[in-house]
Design a protein around this nucleic acid. Structure first.
Lengths: 194, 194, 194, 194
DNA sequence: AATGAATGAGGCTTCATTCAT
DNA sequence: CATGAATGAAGCCTCATTCAT
């Protein structure tokens, strides 16, 4: 009775959902559209996912898991703190661009998740934020970063910029993901110079 | 035939709509909910607005008109360019915070507008972006700003941060709108230092 | 925004629902069937009732209100107790037959009501049962009824018979409602003779 | 090809179905729920039963076969007629209580059977009713029962009471099945005294 | 003997909108 | 001005059933 979690059909449905959610918004996308795009019947979608909310939730957990783990890995390095912050930003920009549809959904649709899952996702996002803020605060305490700006606001500021990436970046534009990552990280560090 | 634009009832409906759109999303808010929140019947809503899309469109035109005109006023000043950029950012942050619900809707829901109006709003937004980008480029050309970062990306970056304001700022938090405005503007300029 | 509680259309919908619920069962009757039978669209049904459960609930409250109030009125008389019990039974049989469809639904579909309403209806039904049982117990205490049968069981027995009326009685059969009422009441009293 | 009728798995499925049908109603119970409750997959259910209706039908045939045969056995005795009627009632009450879930389904869900089978079950039930009615009529003709009440109505009355048993009797209540059987039978006979 | 995949029909409900009054 | 009635389309979801393995 348990359903394959990694069936190719399931993955096709998930892909179709992500792409449509990103393009037209979660609430405006119907299960029928997802089914059509995935080449399945509506019932087929429900064979692999219990509800529309499930689809949305899975986008969030995937992204959260990935980005959180990568960030922590870098943050735990023993390189100099500014290098770590730089690397974190460059990396999150790159993975965001590498999964642009997912990212759009992830950063625009938390408020459409069912209440309990929304709370869960928000909590994990706050944890992410906290970890980065602590890095900033640490740098401020040690003097490598300017200390006259609240660390929380610093994080909101620079990650806010990242969260909007999906709304303007295009793969066929003039910049690669890597370039954008470096630019972003550079600007962050520049604005933190004491 | 059309009622005066500032009829208190009309305004109440608009307010209710903005608040609900910001809280739960445009697509997830029903006319019924708006009517209830405004203390009107559904028919009442349709008396003042032709469609649900009308409500959304008006949020966008209000914000666009206001923010565009303020930005241009400042940009046209004859003070030094960095001061003008600083003022523009501080001001847009303040007006964004002063109209936080509207801003949330404005920055999150363009893609839900009817096609033609969406195109119109996007075009005006691009014009806003262009004007600011030209300011940055001008500064880069004259050497007051560092020139190694594409001006377009600079604008996307710093305005991206502003567009996320509504998702974390709270009026009862530790910072006033003015403070946030100055912090943001400071960080922008810091990151542009040659 | 409030809807007429006594609109003729509303009543037509209610009638159609009762008749269909009685004929094919609540769960097996679709809103579309009700709408068709009432000459309304599906949306029309929802204009007057919030949910399918609402329709079912209203059948229950109508019957409960009516039968409870009639029973209490008779029970409060100051005629001899056996006469009162006789009158109660004859009356409930008559009103049951007079509203046979409603009665069928009422006696067969409590378990399909939404949980909270089901609890409410069951509670009120228990109160009805209690009142009648107290009458029986009183008669047993005073010696006008035989005392060797638990009063609760007596009530379950004789009202059980009444609750099945709708499953066999036909208006075009050989007996009038009044006749059945008297027969039933006679048998009840006969079986209680000391 | 068909598996032995008493395969433990088959029986487990049947038990689960009966219990769920009794608790929530036939139409409201899904094959999925039955499968889960029986610890089988949906396919498993279909391995033993051709359709959902099959399950319901089997409940009916089981009960019918059992109760009809027991009733006839007693009715064919050569003991005095009132004793036979008393024994029939006491016995049907006991077997009803002994199979309470099945009884609930049996007495509440005929109308949900497929048309042809429903006709068949109803016919057999009528035959049961007829036989008992004939006993009553015989007693009335011979003067051991009062003759002023139609025999059909007498049977509807007293068996109606029995058919509601499942809706109030609880195994952990104050009365055993045997006690209830005797009480019921006593009341029936008392109400028939000339 | 048993299962997981897949389907297609249908169910309940919501909702933007129109309209007569 | 404003309302309640009414509609029709669409949405999410459930489910009995079939089938290949």
């Amino acid at each position: 009775m348990r359903t394959q979690v990694d069936s190719p059909v399931r993955e096709r449905v998930m892909r179709a959902a992500i792409s449509l959610f990103a393009a037209k918004g979660f609430a405006t996308t119907s299960i029928r559209e997802i089914a059509d795009a995935a080449g399945v019947t509506k019932g087929g979608v429900y064979h692999y996912f219990e509800s529309k909310d499930d689809l949305l939730f899975e986008v969030h957990t995937r992204m959260l898991r990935m980005q959180t783990s990568r960030m922590h890995t870098i943050a735990d390095d023993d390189t100099p703190l500014p290098d770590r912050l730089h690397a974190i930003i460059a990396d999150v920009v790159e993975t965001t661009i590498a999964n642009l549809d997912e990212a759009v959904v992830f950063f625009q649709s938390v408020h459409l998740l069912a209440a309990d899952r929304q709370a869960q996702v928000r909590a994990e996002r706050r944890a992410y934020h906290s970890r980065v803020r602590d890095l900033v605060a640490e740098g401020q305490a040690s003097g490598v970063f300017r200390g006259d700006v609240p660390a929380d606001l610093v994080v909101h500021y620079h990650f806010g910029a990242i969260h909007r990436l999906g709304l303007w970046y295009h793969a066929d534009g003039p910049m690669t993901a890597e370039q954008v990552g470096v630019y972003f990280a550079d600007m962050t560090l520049a604005s933190l110079r004491p």
